[in-house]
């Protein structure tokens, strides 16, 4: 596995090409990708992962661009993942978030990658988890991950972030949408972008009254910040809020707890891969058809068959 070794070294040295190729392996869900993500995991756990979600067009990518410039000035290395939906019909996708990020991405301290959701169940969250692990192991201090806050898979992604920032814009009725979609519950920082437009204060008030109703946040009161992502207004407040939340997580032992549950998750994934491998082998076995018939006719329980399959594979090894 010379290739894998080389790639890993390249990633540790922060080489763009190695990082990019590693992400491709992970995204493709290939065996090498799984192996790479596993090997990198113990080198990860240092980055602060920030989720950025909100309705289409509120200015998430523009905000990521301006925030990245700001974070670079503070000396942080910044990794960016932007997830866009794949077409459910053709599997294709147009990934356009990079358009708004051109000012920040040329810097060697910044790496940006567009991901398509690729439809397949659970595949996206696994690919995203692997991608976060890789960028973390590559030494990025802050990892920003942009999603359009809509479906279940986006919520799953936001659960991988230490800090979730919900972005809204005035006059789009998306404060109501956000409340319906349940994304107010997942935010630790709220941003009302396009504050150069009318109605920003109204949006701030409606978020505030919604937050007052929910008792989700016993000791962290989510700040609500007005920004103009296009010219950088409010960005200082945003980066301070993110830093304060990071400190809060550290002081309350939540970063460590998060790392623990991520590690558990890695083990769970490995176990479920093992299960998949077992079932693949069992299907190739000559007694598979008989087993199917027997379970169907009630001659044996499926649980018992599972045990047989497991014992068989242990003996073969």
């Amino acid at each position: 596995m010379k290739d894998l070794d080389e790639l890993r070294q390249g990633i540790f040295h922060g080489q763009k090409r190695a990082i990019a190729r590693g992400l491709t392996w992970i995204e493709q869900g290939r065996y090498e990708g799984k192996l790479l993500a596993q090997q990198l995991f113990s080198h990860a756990g240092h980055a602060h992962v920030i989720g950025i979600t909100g309705a289409p067009g509120v200015g998430k990518s523009t905000l990521v661009n301006t925030l990245t410039l700001h974070l670079r000035n503070q000396g942080f290395k910044v990794g960016i993942l932007a997830v866009d939906p794949s077409s459910p019909f053709t599997g294709g996708a147009i990934l356009g978030d990079r358009i708004r990020m051109q000012d920040s991405v040329m810097d060697t301290g910044v790496f940006m990658r567009s991901l398509a959701s690729r439809g397949h169940l659970g595949g996206l969250s696994r690919a995203t988890f692997g991608a976060l692990t890789l960028l973390d192991a590559a030494g990025f201090d802050k990892i920003l991950i942009e999603t359009v806050g809509a479906g279940q898979s986006e919520v799953e992604i936001m659960e991988m972030a230490h800090t979730t920032m919900v972005v809204l814009a005035p006059g789009m009725g998306d404060d109501i949408q956000a409340i319906k979609a349940g994304i107010l519950e997942i935010g630790q920082v709220f941003v009302v972008n396009k504050a150069d437009r009318d109605g920003a204060d109204h949006t701030v008030r409606s978020i505030r009254s919604m937050l007052a109703l929910s008792s989700e946040h016993p000791d962290w009161m989510p700040p609500i910040i007005k920004t103009v992502a296009e010219d950088g207004r409010g960005m200082e407040e945003v980066s301070q809020a993110l830093e304060r939340h990071h400190q809060y997580l550290i002081e309350h032992g939540l970063m460590d707890r998060y790392r623990w549950s991520q590690t558990e998750h890695v083990i769970e994934q490995a176990v479920s891969d093992l299960g998949e491998r077992l079932i693949r082998q069992a299907r190739l076995n000559s007694d598979w058809a008989k087993r199917v018939i027997d379970v169907g006719e009630g001659k044996i329980d499926a649980d018992r068959v599972a045990e047989q399959i497991w014992h068989q594979s242990v003996q073969e090894e």
Binding site: K16, T90, G96
Partner: peptide
């Protein structure tokens, strides 16, 4: 058209320098 043919298309907008184009191609692999 490429999206409809099932491909993933990264689009980066107007006025790109050669450096930006190649950097994007590299990062997006």
């Amino acid at each position: 058209a490429l999206r409809d043919a099932g491909m993933e298309v990264v689009y980066t907008g107007l006025h790109q320098t050669p450096e930006q184009v190649v950097d994007a191609a590299l990062s997006e692999d």
